[in-house]
Every structure is written in C-alpha cells, then in structure tokens.
C-alpha cells in the first residue's frame, strides 16, 4: 500500500503537477493561435515570439516595480506587472496589424502569403527582443518559491517520495482558469464576442450585416495580445526566460491548436493539456515507478524511458503528424470560434 502511494506521489510530482502547469501555458498559447486563425484565417507563426515579447515586457515592468520597492511578498511581483505588459503587447499587436496585416488584408491576399508574412513578423519581433533585452537568460521570479515543499510533504505523510508544488505552477493553473473562463464568457455571452463568432463563421454575411471587420480584427488582436503575454510570462516564470526557447515553443503550441481543431477554443485548451501530458509521459523515466509497483524480482535495470528528454519536441511533432494523417480537422473539428 505504501509502495503504491509512493508510486502515485512520484507520478504526481513528475507528471501531473508539471503537466498541468505546462499544459496551461500551451493552452493559453494555442488559444491565441486559434483566435487569430478563426478570425483572420491564417496560421500566425509569430505567436511564439509574441509570447516572448509579452514575457519580456513583463520582465521590464517587474524590474520597474522592484526598483520602486513594490512587491507582492509571497507571490511573484510579475503578477502585478502582467497587466501593464499585456497593454504594451496589445499595442505592439495593433501596430503590427495596422502596418503589416491590414496592408495585406486590403489587397485581399491569400492565406499562404499571410502565413509567410507572419514569419517575417516572427523574425522582426525576435530581433526586437534581442535588441531590447539581449539574448541572455533572465530570471525574474521572486516571492516564495514553493506552495508545498518536497521535504514538508515527506514529513507530513511519511512517504519516501516527495511532492513539490512551485508557486509559479499553482499560479499558472489559477491564472489560466480565470483567463480561459473569461475568453469563453466573452465569446459566448457578449455581443462583441458574438460578432467575432459571426465573422469567423461567415465573413461575407457578417460584412453584409454591418459588422465592421476592422473592429472585429482589432478585438481579436487585443485578446491575442493578452493571451500571449500571460502565456509567455507564466512560461518564463515557471522555467526561466530564454529568448531562444520561444522559437521552439511554437511547435507544441501549434500541435495543441491543431490537435484540438484549429479555430476551436475548447479544442485549443484540451489540445494544450494533451500535448503537455504526452510530452511528459513519453519522456518520463519509469524505473522508480516500476520499482514501487512491481515485485522486487521484476524491477528493471534500465531507466525505462520511452524517449530521452532531448526528444520532447519530437513528441509534439509526432502527434501533429498523426493528427494530420488521421483527422486533419482535429478532435473538435475546428474552423470557427
């Protein structure tokens, strides 16, 4: 019985808790990608860099707050900085939209061109980030590091295995829940949200119903900017902010969005968690876990790891390929919000 509890704790510590946090970050990222796809009908590959941009603004705002001696004592100061950072990121989105995407939209360019344009925006944003904050890693997490320490957990339960929950992980899940609930409420309950859904459903008819496309697009960018900032800031807080990781983060984010059905917000959230858990499940070393649940004579010698953690990205790639082969529309058959 004790062994079984130990095994469960092990899973909780290495898969469930990190999976929930990472899944939340992916879900927020995928939600942003999906919103842009649903309304503007193109895959925004610059979304990863947008997240990075949001995280960078959060860091700068955090530093500013810290220099004034403001902090949240227990929670990371970054939480306070996120709204201001979101505002800056939203402004950046609006500027990019105005000078780049709007230009192409007026020319009624096809979606493939749009997608190439978004790659241009990706490099521009990446360059801008290097200019402002430099290519080095930044750690901007402060406050109490753990909600639950492994040592305390062991003392509490008397188990061999510890369970640690980082403050940032707890915060990630809570903030994600609030933001996702807000986005869903917005899309389903408010008139503006309904206009967005209508526009995404049938653009021609929406235009002829007097829905102003510029307004819908503007609101899409506002929501996307907020989602990207929060996703980027939480990812940076949870791990560490490295400007280069976001280029690779785009892959699991897109895998999540496509797995759930691009353009479908429920799908994006579900997809985010599925991708996060798959990555962890495939790269977790089960040696200790099996040691606990199997009789002693069966316990394995190797690490019993399906894939090395170096191949983490490959997991999302594999899922992406499988989904595209079997059900290209994703689980929830997306396209409209």
């Amino acid at each position: 019985m004790i062994d079984f509890l130990n095994a469960l704790t092990l899973l909780a510590n290495y898969i469930i808790v990190p999976g929930l946090a990472y899944g939340s970050q992916l879900a927020l990222g995928a939600l942003g990608v999906t919103m842009v796809y649903a309304v503007l009908r193109f895959s925004n590959f610059a979304h990863g860099e947008l997240m990075s941009f949001g995280a960078m603004c959060t860091i700068l705002c955090t530093w500013a707050l810290q220099s004034f001696g403001i902090s949240l004592t227990i929670l990371p100061t970054a939480l306070l900085a996120i709204p201001a950072a979101a505002l800056i990121t939203v402004l950046y989105c609006i500027i990019i939209n105005y000078f780049v995407y709007e230009h192409y939209r007026e020319k009624k360019i096809d979606t493939n061109t749009y997608f190439i344009v978004s790659i241009g925006v990706l490099f521009f944003t990446a360059g801008l980030i290097r200019l402002v904050i430099g290519p080095k890693d930044q750690n901007f997490s402060d406050g109490v590091r753990f909600i639950l320490k492994a040592r305390d957990f062991k003392a509490m339960t008397g188990l061999n295995e510890g369970l640690a929950i980082k403050t940032t992980q707890g915060m990630t899940v809570v903030v994600t829940l609030i933001l996702v609930a807000f986005v869903f409420w917005f899309l389903n309950r408010t008139r503006t949200g309904k206009s967005m859904r209508a526009y995404s459903d049938n653009e021609d008819l929406a235009l002829l119903s007097g829905i102003n496309p510029k307004k819908v697009i503007l609101i899409t960018w506002i929501i996307t900017g907020i989602l990207a900032t929060v996703a980027g800031a939480l990812y940076g807080l949870d791990k560490i902010y490295k400007p280069f990781t976001f280029m690779y983060l785009v892959l699991p984010v897109f895998a999540s969005a496509i797995l759930g059905g691009v353009g479908n917000p429920v799908g994006a959230v579900v997809g985010g968690y599925i991708i996060a858990f798959s990555e962890l499940i495939f790269t977790f070393a089960y040696k200790k876990f099996l040691f606990y649940i199997l009789p002693e004579s069966f316990s394995p010698d190797g690490l019993v790891q399906l894939l090395s953690t170096d191949y983490k990205i490959a997991v999302s790639f594999l899922i992406l390929v499988i989904v595209l082969l079997i059900k290209p529309t994703g689980i929830f058959s997306g396209k409209t919000i």
Binding site: K194, A198, N202, D204, L205, A206, S209, G210, T336
Partner: peptide, 15 residues
C-alpha cells in the same frame, strides 16, 4: 448564408 454556429434567434439579433 447563415451563421451556422449561432441559433436562429441569435442570427437575427446579430443584424
């Protein structure tokens, strides 16, 4: 043409 993911009444209220 219609907004297929909205209800009939919502379609009208969109106008």
């Amino acid at each position: 043409q219609e907004f297929s993911s909205l209800t009939v009444r919502e379609n009208l209220m969109m106008v």
